[in-house]
Design a protein around this nucleic acid. Sequence first.
DNA 1: GCTTTTTGTGCGGGACCCGGACAAACCGGC
DNA 2: GCCGGTTTGTCCGGGTCCCGCACAAAAAGC
Lengths: 387, 387
Amino acid sequence: MPHGSSLERLRETNRRAITTLLAADGPMSRADLVRGTGLSRTTVSSLVGDLIASGHVVETTDRGRPHKGGSGRPPLLVALTVPAGVVAGVDVGHGHVRVAVADRRGGALAERTDGIDVDPDGAATLDHAARMVREVSDAAGVPADDLRAVGMCVPAPLDRRSARLGTGILPGWRELSPAEELHRRLGVPVFADNDANLGALAEVGHGAAKGSTDVIYVKVASGLGAGIVLGGRLHRGTTGIAGELGHVQVVEDGQVCRCGNRGCLETLVSASRLMSVLQPAYDGELSVERALALEEDGDAGVRRVFSDAGLAIGRALADLCNSLNPEVLVVGGSLGASPSLRDAIRSAVDRYAQPDTAAALRVVAGQLGKRAPVVGAVSLANARVGV
Amino acid sequence: MPHGSSLERLRETNRRAITTLLAADGPMSRADLVRGTGLSRTTVSSLVGDLIASGHVVETTDRGRPHKGGSGRPPLLVALTVPAGVVAGVDVGHGHVRVAVADRRGGALAERTDGIDVDPDGAATLDHAARMVREVSDAAGVPADDLRAVGMCVPAPLDRRSARLGTGILPGWRELSPAEELHRRLGVPVFADNDANLGALAEVGHGAAKGSTDVIYVKVASGLGAGIVLGGRLHRGTTGIAGELGHVQVVEDGQVCRCGNRGCLETLVSASRLMSVLQPAYDGELSVERALALEEDGDAGVRRVFSDAGLAIGRALADLCNSLNPEVLVVGGSLGASPSLRDAIRSAVDRYAQPDTAAALRVVAGQLGKRAPVVGAVSLANARVGV
DNA sequence: GCTTTTTGTGCGGGACCCGGACAAACCGGC
DNA sequence: GCCGGTTTGTCCGGGTCCCGCACAAAAAGC
């Protein structure tokens, strides 16, 4: 990586200073860039010239306001160009595959969701996902060779070293490296991570926690997982399996969990568990969507069950917040849409965490809903793809 | 901070590359520096010349081996000089004040511990600490104006924004900013942090977790606290009160804790609590030291009580490890010396954490014992003091 | 129209880094 | 003991990069 002379790297560094400033604060004049970078006018002019020549930046036609209220030559604004090519996000969840194609700034171009059972056969699912990427690109009018990278969401922890799925969660995927397999099918770099981490990436980048640096994203759905962002960076842990909030033991001699332990939090609050607790009281099959609608209509049973689940989750999160003292807690996943659940999490945190810690914490609902994983996958692809 | 031209900063960056390489791998030849930095021989020579002129580096007299087994001109080794001046570490604990004076590389010069009751009066304690710093410096033969900075350990969480102590723990220190107060008394920069964070810094820098990047340091003593190092950096949290492991609630309707909640882990496993549980079975006053000696002699009661405490702590740590997936867990504090307690923590983690997480974790005893906070305070001072 | 103000661009100078040439210091073989 | 081989460190010329200054361009205000 560190090739080229030190002087070239200096110029590269200064170019990056300009592009990151433009990415953060939008189009601005060269004079603004001078103030932002501390470089001289001459240097900025020269660097911007390079960037225009290489196509990374364009001069916009509309000139900005001639400085606020002042006289003087009106500035020429420069703006980042959207790099050529597209990326795709692939969300492999329990019961569906969702694919989004987006430009290199994360702007969505097309998206499609197929409901299929992904658990039994990893290879067939990846075949399907690869086909979807090609078809969705096609539908968006994107030439086949414009695809630059793919981000991928897998519904289970990934071991960082082997890039394989953890044992015991998805039997049909054992010993499979999803990123490598999809790369073989599509011929572009593929980066994989789990749903909670990508949800965190999405909400921090484009959702409820935009701009915060210490964030816990908790996904409450068929499973329970956390994505932990500290100092602005996703914390994956030594072996890449950080965030396993669902497998905190809360009942000493509780149900056996799919992970092998017993009494895990996930056995109490997974979507399927909550639905089966509620089912006997209702006619017809009770889906999560229907339960959320009932909750909104004031159904006491649903509210009670969701609230109890929130208390259990909030109890575990309070301990984690005591240790990490985060700024924002984003509640996502299908059940994150439930106000009862979120309110219960908030009160459990207030009750069980240190007062100062609880006071510093904001608890908010995820803004991206079901799309969070695929948005995070697109973010991951865009973050990792080179220039 | 970013003053001077971009070109000057480039040279500064390259100088730093050399000094950090020397700091990490010890004395080496200019040719080694060329290989390590990727800069040209000419440039390295020039930079080393600057560093020698400015006194940051010296040419050692003993020439290194003339390349291993090869012929050729033997290299001239260059080494970092220890910067002029000293720093002090101040550890204010329950019942003692410990002061260490060290050189700018962390090498201890002198140390002293006074047993005093620090709780009732913060101002008087800081007077005493300032006097100790002057006296210990004097005993080490250090001129008074050689002191460059002080690191300070306070036995309670510090609010990052106000630099004041959290409410309710130390009544005699309320509304006091310890760093500012000690700065006023000594006239040099003072940096304060709590005992768990500084213990973590010490063990990661000079102790049991040297070289690891994801570390949890747990201090088991009169209180229970954790210092969390992630990605090689100490995680302090949004308001600086991360690591409050002692105030995880473990008994729903337990004892009221000094923090205001009830059933906190600390009410079960603090040193004083364990001693009062053990006391009735023994003649004479039972100190922690005596209990540790009894444990070593095979006393079943002490072993059982320490082991039970370890199980409770390990239970809480297992949850945290599930979320953070760290590499090393360092057990420090006065009770960290107990093998029964450490073994119990290990088995609780194995039992309650995810198998993959537990397998990736090393549980080790702290190497610095009671000196950990003061060593960490010295590290903090040396890390923060400028050139 | 003229001044003032702000923006953007050439030009010369200086700082920095690199490649190649050269001296120094040691080893091994004859 | 001498000579080639090897590695290390320094000197020199050239090229790249950034900065300060001067100057042109484009408005607003008198």
